[in-house]
């Protein structure tokens, strides 16, 4: 099972795309760290779905278009992306700021979307729950605060980025700041129309998430009462990376029969 890399040109922007697997389309929207490679959870997804993993404009090897000023620009881009590729009945899976992006896409138009799955998503105001200040943390703090299992952090820290990787890190960080600096990691107006989302929704959260604490799920519970919420124990901000088996169990249970 392998993923094929291609580059697509939409809205004057070249975007890198990894695609693999068979079945109904599943669109994975990455978070601030970008797409670092093919991870075990992606391979598991590809066993059941036709998995689409684009690198958002502004990240990785994709272009940095002038029109990219905020999350809404990315949402419109992806509506065009889905139309361009004639995706329909897509399962959208968004992680972290990719989850916020998924919400912004869905609140506008769910006609090409079958289900919405969000992993530790940002996007709405979370009263009483303050996100970790990712922009003040050092690179080492960021890595340590991403995972509950510190051996994963140790492993990442043991292999410092190459100059090329460092370039990508700086680029991703720039775009992430452009999208999420202020209001920090949310759109204060999104909650007003979030009820427009009319597709089955699941929210998966790592119980020990230090970046977007699990308490934030309460705000989502209120904003999206129809959504099912699953908490993965002994897990930080990226359940799909840290606990791929448990993550896939939870996800597949939700997606099966939909």
């Amino acid at each position: 099972m392998s993923f094929v890399e291609s580059f697509v040109q939409i809205d004057g922007c070249k975007t890198r795309l990894l695609r693999g697997g068979q079945g109904a389309p599943l669109l994975y929207l990455h978070g601030a760290n970008g797409v670092t490679g093919i991870q075990p959870f992606m391979l598991k997804l590809a066993e059941r779905f036709d998995v689409w993993i684009p690198e958002h404009p502004g990240f990785g090897q994709s272009d940095e278009p002038d029109w990219l000023e905020n999350i809404h620009d990315l949402a419109y881009y992806y509506l065009n992306f889905m139309r361009h590729h004639q995706l329909s009945g897509a399962h959208v899976l968004g992680s972290s700021i990719g989850g916020w992006l998924a919400l912004e896409i869905a609140v506008r138009d769910t006609s090409r979307i079958k289900t919405l799955s969000l992993i530790g998503p940002s996007g709405i105001r979370t009263p009483g729950v303050v996100p970790g200040d990712v922009f003040l943390w050092s690179p080492e703090q960021r890595i340590r605060n991403t995972f509950h299992d510190q051996t994963l952090a140790d492993r990442m820290l043991a292999s410092p980025p190459s100059p090329e990787q460092q370039e990508i890190l700086l680029k991703n960080r720039f775009t992430f700041a452009r999208l999420a600096w202020e209001p920090r990691l949310h759109d204060p107006k999104l909650h007003k129309w979030i009820s427009r989302i009319d597709v089955p929704t699941q929210i998966i959260w790592g119980e020990q998430d230090k970046i977007l604490p699990v308490g934030a799920a309460q705000a989502f519970r209120e904003a999206m009462p129809q959504a099912s919420i699953a908490v993965v124990p002994d897990c930080g901000h990226l359940p799909q990376s840290e606990r791929p088996d448990q993550f896939c169990d939870v996800l597949f249970k939700f997606l099966s029969g939909k």
Binding site: L136, W137, L170, K171, R173, A177
Partner: peptide
Amino acid sequence: MPFEMLLPPGYTSRESLR
């Protein structure tokens, strides 16, 4: 002040940041 406080993303060009 810490590096991240002094130089947030985009404050200085990525070339200078390197």
